[in-house]
């Protein structure tokens, strides 16, 4: 786990995660997720659908959020992570997505710490791509009695 639980407080922010979306990444994601919707992989189809070009899978960008949480909370996220996400703007190949987040709630008890966070994925124009609320329960060393 990359963060110091004792140092967490409301408004603590986490190190940002930045990813450049490329068509190669989108194609690889299509292969891995078996989501071959042509709007993601066929520029001509996307243009006929009224877009400027292909758009990335929303779940690809949401995967960045999960990576962001995994790098901060490790195994606790993998076994007890919870997220609610709203897709605001599609991401396109060529976009740079920055994931940032801060703590909005902390509840201690029974040897665990429940951490609430607000997470934001923005593109290089500072437009929100995904707005997300997460919860993760982390075991602490404190006595549970």
């Amino acid at each position: 786990m990359a963060i110091d639980l004792n140092g967490l407080s409301i408004d603590t922010s986490f190190p940002e995660l930045r990813r450049q979306v490329t068509q190669e990444h989108v194609n690889l994601y299509a292969e891995a997720s078996k989501d071959f919707n042509p709007i993601h992989i066929d520029p001509e189809f996307a243009r006929q659908a009224g877009l400027d070009g292909t758009i990335a899978h929303g779940m690809l960008i949401l995967a960045y959020v999960s990576e962001f949480m995994t790098s901060s909370f490790g195994q606790s996220w993998l076994t007890g992570g919870n997220l609610i996400a709203r897709f605001k703007t599609p991401a396109r190949p060529g976009d740079t997505i920055t994931v940032s987040g801060k703590v909005t709630g902390l509840q201690r008890g029974n040897g665990t710490l429940l951490v609430d966070c607000d997470i934001l994925c923005q593109n290089q124009r500072d437009e929100p791509v995904i707005i997300c609320e997460t919860k993760v329960r982390v075991k602490t060393d404190e006595d549970s009695s």
């Binding site: 929303g58 779940m59 949401l62 195994q75 996220w77 993998l78 076994t79 007890g80 992570g81 919870n82 997220l83 609610i84 996400a85 709203r86 897709f87």
Partner: peptide
């Protein structure tokens, strides 16, 4: 069709 929101809870590896 627009994918507007998504919720997940991870319960085990």
């Amino acid at each position: 069709t627009i994918h507007v929101s998504q919720e997940f809870q991870f319960l085990g590896t």
